Amino acid sequence: MKVLVATEKPFAKIAVDGIRKEIEGAGYELALLEKYTDKAQLLEAVKDANAIIIRSDIIDAEVFDAAKELKIVVRAGAGYDNVDLQAATAHGVCVMNTPGQNSNAVAELVFGLLVYAVRHFYNGTAGTELMGKKLGIHAYGNVGRNVARVAKGFGMEVYAYDAFCPKEEIEKDGVKAVDSAKKLYKDCDIVSLHIPATAETKNSINYELLKDMPKGGILVNTARKEVINESELLKLMHEREDLKYITDIMPAANEKFVDFAGRYFSTPKKMGAQTAEANINAGIAAAKQIVGFLKEGCEKFRVNK
Rank of each mutant, 00 (worst) to 15 (best):
V3S: 00
P10C: 10
A12E: 15
K13T: 13
V16L: 14
V16W: 10
D17A: 14
I19T: 05
K35H: 09
Q41Y: 09
K47D: 08
K47T: 13
D48F: 12
I54F: 01
R55A: 04
I59H: 06
A61I: 12
V63S: 06
D65M: 13
A66T: 03
A67I: 01
G77F: 09
A88D: 01
Q101K: 12
Q101Y: 13
N102Y: 06
S103P: 00
N104Q: 14
A105P: 04
E108N: 07
F111G: 02
A117S: 04
A117C: 08
A117M: 07
R119Q: 02
Y122T: 14
A126R: 15
M131H: 15
M131Q: 15
G132V: 14
K134Q: 00
A139F: 09
N142G: 05
A151Y: 05
Y159A: 05
F164E: 12
I170F: 11
A177L: 03
A181S: 06
C188G: 00
V191G: 08
H194V: 04
T198K: 01
T201I: 08
N203I: 04
N203H: 10
K215P: 11
N221I: 02
T222M: 12
R224W: 01
R224L: 00
E226P: 12
V227A: 04
N229E: 10
E232S: 12
M237G: 01
E241I: 11
T247K: 03
T247A: 00
M250L: 15
K256V: 05
F257C: 09
D259M: 15
F265A: 03
P268V: 08
K270P: 13
Q274M: 15
I280V: 10
G283D: 00
I284K: 06
V291W: 04
E296P: 05
K300W: 06
